[in-house]
């Protein structure tokens, strides 16, 4: 009985965070560019959804994943976290990577241009989010060296994550080349549910302290 529910939860998670985004990606009927470029594009999109999933794997009670063991959840959270943080740290490099295999602006010139252009909202927001992901990664990796209480660290981590997904979603919706209206709505829905859930948990904590 519990197993079935676990399975259906897993299936639901896959559907929400992988299935639908991929479906919207396909429905966009974007022109084929190259295997490398399109794979990177899809991977980036799914990595973004994995970040949303992180909110549900953060051990907050009252989520659909409550039935899993806390320890298991946190272990998955950490694992996904480090992989996705690493992925997004490489995000600017992935954008210029195909330039190694085709004619045009040299990859190093493209990268410099990309990191030093501050002309559009989406780009600036993206660069701030880029800095935040380093912060998130570093504060998680060196949590024990920070000398913070777990509770305050958790709050810092949560607030940074909130800010991060807000900026990252903005950046993705504004700049993403495989973002259509359906994808936009789904991102907004998933991102706001995730944020709302986290904020709810804070409120519950507030109430408990009172």
């Amino acid at each position: 009985m519990q197993n079935t529910s676990k399975h259906s939860t897993l299936f639901g998670v896959l559907f929400i965070f992988m299935g639908l985004p991929t479906l919207f990606w396909f429905l966009g009927e974007y022109p084929f560019r190259s295997f490398l470029k399109d794979s990177l594009g899809l991977a980036t999109l799914l990595a973004l959804y994995l970040l949303y999933l992180q909110f549900f794997l953060s051990g907050i009670p009252k989520t659909p994943l409550e039935s899993y063991r806390f320890k298991t959840i946190i272990r998955i959270h950490k694992y996904i976290g480090y992989v996705v943080v690493l992925f997004f740290m490489l995000h600017p490099f992935f954008i210029v990577l195909p330039r190694f295999f085709e004619a045009g602006l040299l990859p190093q010139d493209a990268l410099i241009k990309l990191l030093t252009t501050f002309e559009t909202q989406g780009e600036i927001v993206g660069l701030i989010a880029y800095l935040l992901i380093f912060f998130l990664g570093a504060t998680s990796l060196f949590r024990h060296k920070l000398g913070m209480k777990y509770r305050s660290w958790k709050l810092l981590h949560g607030i940074t994550s909130l800010l991060f997904i807000f900026l990252a979603s903005w950046h993705a919706i504004d700049m993403g080349r495989h973002i259509n209206d359906a994808q936009t709505l789904w991102i907004v829905l998933v991102a706001s549910t995730a944020s709302w859930m986290l904020l709810q948990s804070y409120r519950r904590e507030d109430e408990r302290i009172k």
Partner: peptide
């Protein structure tokens, strides 16, 4: 397309 640093342009 070749000058675009983020390869944003598609041409048919």
């Amino acid at each position: 397309r070749m000058y675009c640093p983020v390869d944003a342009i598609i041409i048919s």
